[in-house]
Amino acid sequence: MAKVKFDILESTCVSIPFENVDTDQIIPARFLSATSREGFGDNLFRDWRYKKSGEPNEEFILNNPKFGGKILVAGKNFGSGSSREHAVWAIFDYGFRAVVSSFFADIFMGNSLNNGLLPIVISDELLKKLHSLIQKDPSTKINIDLEKQLFTILSTGDSVKFVINPYKKECLLKGLDDIDFLLSMKDSITGYENNKNMVR
């Protein structure tokens, strides 16, 4: 759960520009048999990262030592498909702390925020520009200031304000946990149950 605090993040980025990357690409179903949250990073983008023989696929960006960093810059419509939180665990476990796209699937967005991975939506144009900047210059750095909700490409000075639900922002900044919050409301929940005009 979101006990991870998020403050200011300045890092280089990894660019994976493909559109419509679904959760089966992020973590294929055959790696979902574990019963803990750890270790999924090893299988992040598994079928792109490794050849059928099991050898690393040199052409895939995660195997290219020139690129690295804590920010994953993805393509449009990222994270559609299954509700598997394993997708977010894999991205987080690999070492990413923020993921940038021009469009995220709903469940993926919620799962990210619940696990301390910050999803940032920027415009299609800026996303395109960012991908080509990173591909040309792997040392391209981004600064993410959650408090101010500012997303800045340091080399070009492009800076945009991003949107985040104020409640979720608070949770991330303070490292608060939704379940602790809900548990503190037990009386209201029981009260609701008692009053409920049962629809059934």
């Binding site: 709903d106 919620g110 379940i179």
Partner: peptide, 22 residues
């Protein structure tokens, strides 16, 4: 609607979930 595992834990713990209204 479908939920992630953190939310499964929420529902097990409190029978409630935190959701923005779509």
């Amino acid at each position: 609607f479908g939920i992630g595992t953190s939310e499964v834990e929420m529902v097990l713990a409190t029978q409630c979930i935190l959701q923005p209204k779509p």
